[in-house]
Every structure is written in C-alpha cells, then in structure tokens.
C-alpha cells in the first residue's frame, strides 16, 4: 500500500514533468509508437482480411499464419530482429506490428464472414458490382467487428510497447526498466500505472467508436426484433 502511495506521489512529482524524461513526453512517445504500429499493422492486415472475407479464399492460410504469429514471444522476436538490424526503434516496430496483425486480420475477415449471405446475395441481385458490395454492404456491416479487432490489437500493443525501451531511450517502458534496475520501485509502479491508464483510456475510446460504427439499420432492426418478442 505504501508503495502504491509512493508511486502516485512519483506520478504527481513536478520534477518528473521537466527534461528529457518528463512524463508527458514519455506518454506522447508511447502513444505515437502505438498509433504508428497500429497503422502499419492495419495497412497490412485490413486489405488482406477484406480479401479473405469477401472471396472466402486463403482463410485456412490466414488462420494458421495469424495463429502462429500470436504464439511468437515478442521479446524473443525483438532480440532476433535487433540482432540483424541493430538497436533503435526499428526492431520494436517490426516485433509489435507482428503482434498487432493477427487480431486486426481476424477482425477484418470475421466481420465480412458474419454477414448474412442473403444480404450479400440481395445486393448482388439488385445489380451492385463486387466493389460496391464491399464498400456499400460488407464494409459497414463488418466494421464493428473490425474495430473490435483493432481494439484488442491496440490493447496488446500499448502494454507491450514498453519493450521499445529495451533498445532505445523511448516510451513509458523507460520507467519500468530504470525502476527495476535501480530498485526504484515507486518509479517502476508509477510507470506501470501510467501504462494501465493509457490502456484504459484507449479502451474507452475504442468502445465508443465501436458503438457508433454500428449501422443504424442494424441497430433498429435488432431492437424491433427484441420488442416483438
């Protein structure tokens, strides 16, 4: 309990708000790194997921690859990549992108797969092109699940991004490593609390987005069914 109070004091200590190790700077670095990683992972995983979801092709491959990706220990991968490209932020970007790809990929293709086939057949029957089906039907209907995938990737990345500090003077992980190695446990716990707060804030933002991206038609039809029952 004492340690918890000490770590909160550490977070509030004005000394930790100046210089190159200031809390706001570390928070921004951490967030920037997380957002960039999610963008890179999305750029790879979303088009691939849409392709798989729309065509139904390559699903087995995607499932096994993303399953294997999930099983890779991130610190081991980080070390392995750093041994070939050197220290700095490059290796953490690669390692965490690989961590973020599976949930986003799964969110993208399950979002498409979860759509009632009759809806898509109806869209095709009224003369929509494949491109129009993807953009006008599958994308909006699959969006909540896709956002869900990005949300779970974001949670993993923001907590694992502390590893970026393993090889660079970067992010909230700095407090964890310095605190651990110099036995300054208030700093270590303070850093952890900041990571937790960031993760919770991000969760809140994504939960809100997820609620708002549900197409209006889907919501109202669902609620009507409930009322009939």
């Amino acid at each position: 309990m004492n340690l918890l109070i000490e770590s909160i004091q550490w977070i509030l200590d004005p000394q930790n708000y100046v210089g190159g190790n200031a809390i706001p700077l570390r928070v921004l670095e951490h967030l920037g790194f997380t957002v960039a990683t999610l963008l890179i992972a999305s750029a790879v995983a979303i088009p691939a997921g849409f392709f798989i979801g729309h065509t139904g092709r390559g699903r087995g491959l995607a499932v096994s690859i993303s399953g294997a990706f999930r099983a890779i220990p991130t610190l081991g991968l980080l070390t392995l990549v750093a041994l070939s490209i050197g220290i700095g932020l490059g290796a953490p970007y690669v390692a965490l992108t690989i961590l973020a790809i599976p949930p986003i990929l799964a969110g993208a293709y399950t979002g498409f797969e979860a759509i009632d086939r009759r809806t898509i057949d109806a869209a095709r029957a009224v003369g929509m092109s494949e491109g129009q089906i993807v953009r006008g039907v599958e994308l909006p209907l699959g969006l909540p699940l896709l956002i869900g995938g990005i949300r779970s990737a974001a949670l993993q990345v923001i907590s694992t991004a502390t590893l970026a500090a393993y090889l660079a003077d970067f992010g909230l992980g700095r407090y964890l490593f310095t605190g651990l190695k110099t036995r300054d446990y208030a700093e270590m716990l303070g850093g952890s609390i900041l990571v937790i707060l960031l993760a919770l804030a991000l969760e809140g933002i994504f939960a809100t987005i997820q609620r708002f991206v549900v197409p209006r038609g889907v919501v109202s039809s669902r609620s009507r069914v409930v009322r009939v029952r």
């Binding site: 070390t79 750093a82 041994l83 050197g86 220290i87 700095g88 500090a165 393993y166 090889l167 660079a168 003077d169 700095r174 490593f177 190695k181």
Partner: peptide, 23 residues
Amino acid sequence: AGFTPVEDGGGPLTVKALQDGDI
C-alpha cells in the same frame, strides 16, 4: 554525447550496437 539503453546486460545486442557504431 548521451546514454542509449540496451537492456541485455552486455549481451549480443550491446555487442552489435558497438560494432554498428550506434554506441
């Protein structure tokens, strides 16, 4: 010039950083 954290306790990553001239 500054301090670059490499947290592997003088292991292969530190050696690599020395040889790359990062530190």
